[in-house]
């Protein structure tokens, strides 16, 4: 094992153990725990057995294992960006609901008094 493997593999093993523990305890999202567990396990395998990634890369027409790892990293980067963007939009929508509710419950005039509209008779729906 080289120095890089000595440094990274224990960290990855710890991360895998932590995710497995989360999965077994049932705390948090199982899907998220499984997703990250697989990511860390894949990284650990690629670092521990670099020749394995090279042979996998060759089987799909890519000359170097490092290139395959980089392609995956870029792909995961895009997926991660998309997921964060979707989550941000959801937060944005919730923020709007909150701002809207506060606005509707506090209609004010210039003097700070609540506004009273002439209430229309809504008999037909």
């Amino acid at each position: 094992m080289n120095a890089f493997q000595w440094i990274t593999l224990p960290i990855l093993v710890l991360l895998i153990v932590e995710r497995t523990w989360t999965l077994l305890r049932g705390s948090g999202s199982r899907r998220v725990a499984l997703f990250w567990g697989l990511i860390w396990a894949g990284a650990a395998v690629a670092i521990a057995w670099p020749d394995l990634t090279t042979s996998i890369a060759a089987s799909v027409g890519i000359s170097r294992g490092a290139d395959l790892a980089m392609y995956f990293a870029i792909l995961f980067g895009f997926v991660g960006f998309f997921m964060i963007y979707v989550r941000m939009r959801r937060l944005d929508a919730n923020l709007t609901l909150l701002v809207r509710r506060i606005a509707i419950e506090n209609p004010v005039h210039l003097d700070g008094q609540p506004s009273q509209p002439s209430r229309a008779n809504a008999s037909h729906e």
Partner: peptide, 26 residues
């Protein structure tokens, strides 16, 4: 009648706020 969004949310959000309020007011 003035409804105030505490922070800017956009024209679409403002319209829906006004529509919701108008419905509540009958």
């Amino acid at each position: 009648l003035v409804l105030r969004h505490a922070i800017n949310r956009g024209q679409g959000a403002a319209l829906q706020t006004g529509i919701d309020f108008a419905i509540e007011q009958g």
